[in-house]
Write a protein that binds this DNA or RNA. Structure first.
Length: 316
DNA sequence: AATCTGCTCAACCGCACATAC
DNA sequence: GGTATGTGCGGTTGAGCAGAT
């Protein structure tokens, strides 16, 4: 089916916004306590623009919480790290940088960071090293790191969604206390079980990071959280019951040892509820901590390949 | 001074998804 | 279940500017 244009294009203005138009839009949104329907906004506000244009102008420029000025080194670092995990999912990346818009980040990437990575001999899409024969050096894919990336991706999506819904933009400050959480898990018995399990039978859910972007695939928030959370929660929730029902729909159940300490008493309800899975995700104590991406990998006994293969090392 | 080139970034376009009917 | 509509997202474009020639 053909998609109808967002509005009647006849007589509508295009191109740069004038200060007068900006003022009209801002006044209207302030006066009405919100934008309401973008489609009807231009008519109601008396603007000769389409709703889409108004929305873009507001979200990318007029919104009061927009941060102006050049990106800091920290912000650039974070963009590179998140891009390594999420790819070109600018909106999700933007949700982690307060006051920055997806458009801004996209522009930053295309004009600066991409070139910087290329200058360092890294493929800007995969963040992998480009060899002389213009192929990328691909480390053997590790299921746990892919899952870590998937989990992180899902977590960021969840946060983005929540921040959109609440219209708040107050990210939880980055902390250090759990910075090595994944690595501790990886090096623990749980990690060992997980590795063992993945070697055996998890191919159905071993989608690459890029696939995690699709909510219809195995890497959806629901699938990821039900898949990953037993491992993570298994370490964070003490004294809970066991239940082998919690599993990825398209995968086999988890090995029993992985489920130790995991409270699945309500997993039947959780299983099919992405909201519940989302909650489980957000309850995980690693709140917004991206610092593990920056940690010196030498501090851990983890094989360096595990980190480099997913571009967890910031090339700055 | 005129022209060219490269860069930046605001804005547009088309598609996908979610939701309502 | 099918269709219409609203919204969000990512890719792309092009005007404006600065520096080089």
């Amino acid at each position: 089916m053909g998609r109808a244009p967002c509005c009647d294009k006849k007589g509508l203005k295009k191109g740069p916004w004038t200060p007068e138009e900006d003022q009209i839009l801002v006044d209207f949104i302030k006066k009405n306590g919100g934008h309401g329907s973008w489609r009807s906004l231009p008519k109601l506000a008396g603007l000769l623009r389409c709703g889409k244009s108004c929305r873009l102008r507001w979200t990318n420029y007029l919104r009061p919480d927009i941060k102006r000025g050049p990106f800091t080194q920290e912000e650039e670092k974070l963009v590179i790290q998140l891009h390594g995990i999420l790819g070109n999912r600018w909106a999700t990346i933007a949700s982690q940088l307060p006051g920055r818009t997806d458009n801004e980040i996209k522009n930053l990437w295309n004009t600066h960071l991409k070139k910087r990575l290329m200058g360092m001999g890294l493929d800007p899409q995969t963040h992998e090293l480009i060899t002389s024969c213009s192929t990328t050096v691909k480390a053997p894919a590790s299921p746990i790191t892919r899952h870590m990336a998937q989990w992180e991706s899902a977590r960021l999506e969840a946060e983005a969604r929540l921040s959109r819904e609440s219209s708040l933009f107050n990210p939880i400050p980055l902390g250090k206390s759990d910075s090595d959480y994944f690595l501790r898990i990886w090096n623990s018995e749980i990690g060992e079980s997980f590795r063992k399990f993945n070697r055996e039978d998890k191919t159905a859910c071993q989608s690459p990071v890029s696939q995690a972007s699709s909510s219809t695939k195995c890497g959806s928030i629901s699938a990821i959280t039900t898949e990953i959370s037993p491992i993570l929660l298994g370490s964070s929730i003490a004294g809970s019951n066991q239940n082998e029902d919690n599993e990825c729909k398209s995968c086999k159940s988890y090995p029993e040892e992985m489920m130790v300490g995991y409270d699945t008493s309500s997993s039947d309800e959780l299983e099919d509820s992405s909201d519940s899975a989302l909650q489980m995700l957000l309850d995980f104590p690693i709140n917004n901590d991206m610092s593990f991406l920056e940690e010196d990998i030498d501090k851990y006994s983890t094989p360096p390949a595990m980190l480099t293969e997913n571009s967890f090392i910031c090339p700055l």
